[in-house]
Nucleic acid binder design. Structure first.
Lengths: 344, 344
DNA sequence: GACTAGTGTGGGAGCGCTCCCATACCTCTG
DNA sequence: CAGAGGTATGGGAGCGCTCCCACACTAGTC
């Protein structure tokens, strides 16, 4: 009737051709050791001759696992982040999943309605686990998914004490490294432009900034801190405030490259040279940083590596959830790296 | 035994609770009109009370459709394109699929080996159709997929006469608009830096450039054409050649923003001012364009809209392939738009 | 008042696997 | 040489749906 998959061979047919039973073919396909070498070869030949590929739906139904995982990206955040962020993350996740022979289901969540629909998908048992990119401080999704009994790994965390397994980069170290570098360049009136405080990443980078100052023997000064929102326009706004309040500043640590681009524009308009008058450091090491004039010193995060680590962790969680082994929540914090360019 | 999905209700249980048969519940779930209003309400209540969600694997097995489609992105290309390209494309595809209640399987193909594995996935009937991003001139994948009997829609085309359904932007129009704009600015010695000629998109933009010149009454001159490869470094190299060959040029149309960034660097080193000495136009309208100094005039492609269109087309193809209606290959070419900034 | 057409509904028969129990055979013990 | 303890194998019983045939029951026809 449907024509399309009419000719596709089944396990049964492979079994018949190899002169063995269904169970045996299944064992060979799934790499069970309980098969004689001779039988294995015979089955392998039949599989090759017929071009057999196991039907995924049947496998999922009988075995209650899908060999697929979902990666959820909240649309709102997708626009905030330095653009290649999510693509790099996807790249890492995808590479690791390919090695494990698992599929990646990508879900962009645009609205509350879509979030609910996504929960339906999860309930329909389409995936074995979930990867969450960029969660806000009060995001209920991670907990909801766990209630459904699905393993989850997040990128970043919601709070200092995050109960859900996650992979994060060392954002405190990022702030600290930036400040140490600026101090090393002889700067002492170092300002910072932060992200929104409902995101842990923003608080962490600010914390690192303060720690860096303290370590250098410079007392942190709140008049040198201005809140941005990770957008270029937010960076501009925060920089103007800063310039009003502290015209004597000699360096700025912007918590993202995109904000640093805004800062750079304001400095140009104000007639301040970079780096001579004001040194500038961003975070992300995005393509934007390389193309800025002058090229921007920036703290690099190992985004692709974070993706890989997340996928690895999730796969392990999936394994262990089957074995019902109770495991303490895992966390990984990957190191960041300062990339020095001409802006500092 | 497995614990995780122990409590998940089945069709059968919903039927029992609603006091109807399995078939009736299935009809309600699938929106068949052959159900009385009264029964429909009763079933709907049972569904709500039990929190029933149909098991996707069972559906796929029984109904031989997955409600999922694959989006394939060749890794090599992913690095070439102006970064947000694929994310925008994904955004469009995802939005359209969400409306149709379909899932998106994302596949990054890194190697020949992975391409083969991907074909296995298709054979395993995991998806109802395939979206292909960025195919090279000699890519066999589109045809292979059609041989498997799966509907395909590509982003871009391989040749002028592409047999596979596709969505493309008007690349010829892009080149033409860029040249017309430069001519309008009083330029007459307009050079171009192209993409690699094995990509149709590169040939089309070059064709548009030539058409634009001809329309303006300027005879195209091959010494003003230099081949790039869509990378920044390629743009630099091509620009140096051009400057050697035709130091008198007064404008450059670069076939991508990334190459334009390379061009801009070379011009700065050569002491040429933009736009006073040399006007510059790129393609993509990427974030890079906005942040360049001066901001880059660029031809915008409706990337997200292309994604949406692709998804819509594929969904229609899937429908029609079920109905076995023979359809002529479809194609959509979406208009581009010149965004004028200070570089020209 | 028997006949035809609808409607709504129930439930059997699969879809193509995995799981696991039963069986056959083989090897080693005492 | 009976019994125990492997190892390899076959195949039944499901997994939770969709498809479709069969059966009511209703309403309209001559």
């Amino acid at each position: 009737m449907s024509g399309r998959q009419s000719g596709r061979p089944t396990l049964e047919q492979v079994a018949a051709r190899a002169g063995v039973g269904r169970g045996t073919v299944s064992r060979v396909i799934n790499g069970s050791p309980r098969v004689s070498e001779q039988t294995r070869t015979a089955v392998a030949r039949a599989v090759a001759e017929l071009g057999y590929v196991p039907n995924q739906a049947a496998r999922a139904l009988a075995g209650s696992r899908t060999d697929a995982i979902a990666l959820v990206i909240p649309e709102a955040e997708a626009r905030l982040f330095a653009e290649p962020y999510f693509l790099d993350l996807i790249r890492g996740v995808s590479a690791e999943l390919a090695e494990a022979d698992k599929q990646l289901l990508l879900t962009l969540v645009r609205s509350e309605q879509e979030r609910q629909r996504f929960e339906q998908y999860l309930a329909a048992q389409r995936v074995d686990g979930v990867l969450l990119a960029s969660v806000h401080g009060d995001d209920p999704l991670p907990d909801r998914i766990r209630e459904l009994g699905l393993p989850v790994v997040m990128n970043g965390r919601r709070t200092e004490a995050e109960p859900v397994p996650y992979v994060d980069s060392d954002n405190i170290g990022a702030g600290r490294a930036a400040v140490a570098h600026l101090v090393g360049r002889g700067r002492s009136r170092i300002a910072t432009i932060t992200g929104p405080f409902d995101m842990y990443v923003a608080r962490a980078r600010l914390g690192g900034y303060r720690a860096g100052l303290t370590e250098a023997g410079i007392p942190p000064d709140e008049t040198l801190v201005s809140a941005g929102d990770f957008t270029e326009e937010g960076g501009r706004r925060a920089m103007r405030e800063l310039l009003d309040r502290r015209p004597d500043l000699d360096a700025v640590f912007a918590a993202s490259d995109v904000m640093a681009a805004g800062v750079r524009g304001v400095l140009r308009e104000a007639g301040r040279r970079v780096p001579e008058d004001v040194a500038l450091v961003g975070v992300d090491d995005s393509p934007v940083a390389r193309l800025m004039d002058p090229p921007l010193t920036s703290v690099r995060q190992p985004i692709e590596e974070m993706g890989r680590t997340m996928a690895r962790m999730l796969i392990r969680e999936i394994h262990e959830s089957t074995e019902a082994a109770p495991v303490e929540p895992r966390r990984h914090v990957l190191p960041t790296e300062l990339i020095v360019r001409e802006s500092s």
